[in-house]
Structure formats: structure tokens, C-alpha cells
């Protein structure tokens, strides 16, 4: 019997983590705007959300290739 969590590809796990961290880094700005929270949002939050999306897109592309949909 295989553990279902081991079936989640690493790229998906990384996508999860990047998105979660990205959203968490956006929160301080929305709670209180200061120059520092704005920098955290700009230089950490946004790139992490972008990375999360790109990793997810790569996984979708791989799945489609595997099923010969592409």
C-alpha cells in the first residue's frame, strides 16, 4: 500500500509552499501599510506567488504530455 502523500509530485508540493508563503508575505501589507511591508510584498510575496504559479503550470504541462493530450 502506497502513502497517498507520496503520490503528490515534488513540483506540486513546491507550488503549494511557494503560494502559501507568497500569500503570507502579502498579509502584513494589507494589515498595516509601512515601507517595510510594502517591500516584503513587492520583493518576496509577488515573486513567490509567481513561482508557485509557474511550478503549477509546469506540472499541468507535464500531465498533458503524459496523457498525450499535447
Amino acid at each position: 500500500m502506497t502513502n497517498p502523500s507520496s503520490e503528490i509530485p515534488l513540483i506540486v508540493r513546491l507550488s503549494f509552499a511557494a503560494t502559501l508563503l507568497g500569500v503570507i508575505f502579502c498579509l502584513p501589507l494589507l494589515i498595516k501599510e509601512t515601507p517595510y511591508t510594502f517591500v516584503v510584498f513587492m520583493f518576496l510575496g509577488q515573486p513567490l506567488l509567481g513561482i508557485g504559479f509557474i511550478l503549477f503550470a509546469i506540472n499541468v504541462f507535464r500531465d498533458l504530455k503524459k496523457t498525450q493530450a499535447l
Binding site: 501599510e33 510584498f41 506567488l49
Partner: peptide, 16 residues
Amino acid sequence: VAVLPVAVVFFSYSYG
């Protein structure tokens, strides 16, 4: 991963 983060970034920018 794709839809909600866009909304979060949009409103964060808008507010920020």
C-alpha cells in the same frame, strides 16, 4: 494557485 493569488496581488497593489 492561479486565480485567488491574482486577486490578492491586485488588491494588495491597489491598497498599497
